[in-house]
Structures are given as structure tokens and as C-alpha cells.
Simulated assay, not measured.
Amino acid sequence: MDFKMEVYILRHAISIANEKNLVCGSRDYPLSETGIKQANRICNHLQKIPFTLGYSSPLSRSIDTIKYMKEKLQFNIVAEISEVDTGDASHMTFEKLWSLDNRYRSPWLHPYLRYPAGECFYEMINRIQSWFLNESNKWKENDIVLIVGHEGTLRSILLNLLNLKISEYPTFPIKNCDYFHLFITDGVLKEKKHLTLEDIG
């Protein structure tokens, strides 16, 4: 008998750092006014789905994205699915970081390039994928799971499920409040749907 699960992976709503084009990584920034409106829309849409398990990054931009769902679904707060730790580069503009080392424009092509006093891309991806593999082994038949995190969270999980290389990290665009609806059978991704705020109306 096939073991089937549905998994939804959601990127947080737009934050102040996103709007200011700042490197923030695992540093905390709140949602912007636009992000709060986005969060309301995505919650109204997702709360109709009978989730059995919920997980969120501990950063406020993730937690506040699903603020209005927390009455219906208890979320496990998971440090392992936070964004990459950008260390001393946090709070810089991307332009400033790129001027220091142009390789940071495409860290997936330089996965062992460490952010100063932070992580490298390989460490982030390994951290998130290891958590996903370990945690998904605990899920039950027909569980419907929601994971709320960051661009790095979503891409790392998808790299694993799609059997892609780290160099293929930016293959698919992921905007704020985009989510992927994944259908997994016996640990194998059978189907995925990519939805945006525009798709849900």
C-alpha cells in the first residue's frame, strides 16, 4: 500500500528587509505594511485546508505570516528551517555585500563560501534537508503538513525532492507568500504545484 502525504511549503510575506533590499538571513525583521496584508490574504486561503501538522521558522516574519492560522493549527517552531546565517553581512544592502565579494551574487555556485561570522550555503542546505528528512519520517499516512519559512527553506527542500544539484538552486522563482503544494508517495515527489498570491485571487 502506498504511503501518501501532502506537504505545503510557504515563503513568508514581504518584510521590511525585503523592501529595503537588505541582507538579513537569519536576523529578525518584521513584516512591512504590505507584508501584513499579504499575510492576511494567505491565511484566509490556507485556513480552509485541514492541516494536521504545522512548522514555522522562529523568525517573526515567518511566525507573523501565519498569525491568523494559529487558532486552528498549532505550529512547531523549528530553528533548523531558518534562513542562512549571513553573520556580519546582515543588515548590509546587497549592493554593499556584492562590492566586498562578487561571489555573493550567486552563493549557490560557491556553496562553501562562508558569510563573515556566519554560514555557507552548503551548511544551510544540509541543515534544512537533514531536518526535513528526519521529521518527515515521523509523519503518518495522509498527513497534510504546512511548513512556513524562507526562500532558503523552500529551495533546500525542493532541491532534495527534485534531486537537483546546489548549482540549480535558483532554477525556479519564489516570491513572498508563494507556496508549493507537494504530493509525496513513499518518500518520492509525485506532483508539485506552485501557487502565488495572484493565483489565489
Rank of each mutant, 00 (worst) to 15 (best):
T34D: 09
L195H: 05
Y104W: 13
T34Q: 13
M92N: 02
C24S: 15
I174Q: 01
D101Y: 08
R61N: 09
N102F: 09
A117D: 14
M1P: 09
T52D: 05
M92D: 06
F172E: 05
I144Y: 05
D2Q: 11
H194C: 11
L162S: 02
M1V: 12
W108Y: 14
W131E: 06
E123F: 01
D143F: 04
A39N: 08
E80T: 03
G25A: 11
I9D: 02
D88T: 08
D178F: 13
G118D: 12
A79M: 12
N102M: 08
L133G: 04
S90L: 02
K67G: 00
Y112H: 15
K175C: 08
E95F: 01
S62N: 15
T171F: 14
E95H: 02
F132Q: 07
L31W: 09
P107Y: 04
C43T: 06
G152D: 02
N40Q: 13
C24R: 14
C24V: 14
I184Y: 10
F180M: 08
D85T: 07
A17C: 12
R27I: 03
L10E: 01
I14R: 05
N134R: 11
Y169P: 00
G35E: 12
I144Q: 12
F121S: 11
D101S: 07
I49N: 03
P58M: 02
A17Y: 08
D28C: 04
L197K: 09
I16F: 01
N44Y: 02
W98R: 00
N76K: 14
I166Q: 10
K72Y: 11
R127I: 05
G54E: 07
N76C: 10
R11V: 03
N21E: 14
I49E: 12
K70E: 14
N102H: 13
S56L: 08
G149M: 06
V78D: 06
A89M: 10
S156Y: 05
I125D: 00
H110V: 00
Y112E: 15
I49M: 05
R127D: 06
W131T: 10
L146Q: 03
A79C: 04
D186N: 15
L97T: 04
Y55D: 07
M124P: 00
K138D: 07
L133H: 10
F183M: 03
D199L: 04
R11A: 08
Y8M: 09
K138P: 00
L164Q: 09
I63K: 15
R61A: 05
W98K: 01
N40M: 04
H150A: 05
N102G: 02
E95S: 14
N21I: 00
T34G: 13
F183A: 01
K37F: 06
A17P: 01
H12C: 09
Q47G: 00
H91R: 13
D2H: 12
T86F: 07
I144E: 07
G35T: 07
L73S: 04
P170R: 08
T86C: 14
L97N: 03
E71G: 11
S32W: 14
K175D: 13
L22R: 13
N134P: 00
E141L: 10
M124K: 14
K20H: 12
D64F: 08
E151V: 11
N134W: 00
